[in-house]
Amino acid sequence: MARRVFPNEEGPLDAPVFGGREFPNEEGPLERLEPEAGTATENATAAPLIGLTEEGAYQIKLDVFEGPLDLLLFLIKKKKVEIQDIPLALITREYLAYLQERERINLDREAEFLLMAAILIYIKSQILLPRETPIDPDIDPRKERPDRSGDYERVKVVSAVLRDKEEEQSTIWRRTALNAPLPEEDLDLIEVSLFDLAESFFAMMKRKQAAPQRVLKTKEISVADKTKEIVETLKERGFLDFLEYLDAQETLEEALVAFFCLLELIKARLVLAVQEQLFHTIKVWLRKEPAGEDA
């Protein structure tokens, strides 16, 4: 194989990678990733830089390094491998060509590859940029980010501590634990009309709409499920604050469904919507006797 020099955009800093070494094609577990005929230009003749192991993980094959990408990243951070020696542009091109010809991709694997490739490209771009002063060791992009794996261990310990406390707390009771009883007639409660509910709801919707929000995923919410959820919550807590509950819904759609469910429940006389005083929040109670005779 002929010695290859990197394309100009890689800059003179890069040493030739293939430096005379042959990549044996018969290398067992590595399956060659065939770049698409159209996109493969000069690389087509070169041995592939990326291969797949039997387990389906990516392997990088270079003169200076051979192995998975995360190991490469690790070694670069430990400064055992010089980032300048890694032809990222070629690897990226080959990878993209490979992705293009795939009909199905393994999202987890690609995400992992992309993340590491992006970190590598970032590191390299920082190293290649001309600087007036040498890189401050504190902001050296190769520097290891603080290891957060210890954080998780700690979180697990704290979880266990909190679980014990929760257990302990669940056997002792204070007065607030008592649900306020279903309001009696003489409490002078105002049973609210549909208009009050709708008015509150739309005021909240407007507020919600004003707040910027992005919908990244849509979840199918059925009226039946939501109704069940509302009844469960009511059974557990005794009452719901109408607006607060709708406000806590993840999306507008979900809030709409919840609103609809509440209306249905009120209509079926399973729950009661009341205001303790004018202008107070509207509370929704579970009726003790479902659908009793009218007052």
Binding site: D151, V155, K156, V158, S159, E166, S170, I172, W173, E236
Partner: peptide, 30 residues
């Protein structure tokens, strides 16, 4: 006095946080 109190309140068992929620909560707390 947990059992009689629970009987009065008609609460079977207090709902516990899921392990996932507890972990997230610990992370927030720290």
């Amino acid at each position: 006095f947990d059992p009689p109190v629970r009987k009065l309140l008609q609460i079977e068992r207090r709902k516990k946080l899921s392990p996932a929620a507890l972990e997230a909560l610990s992370a927030v707390a720290y």
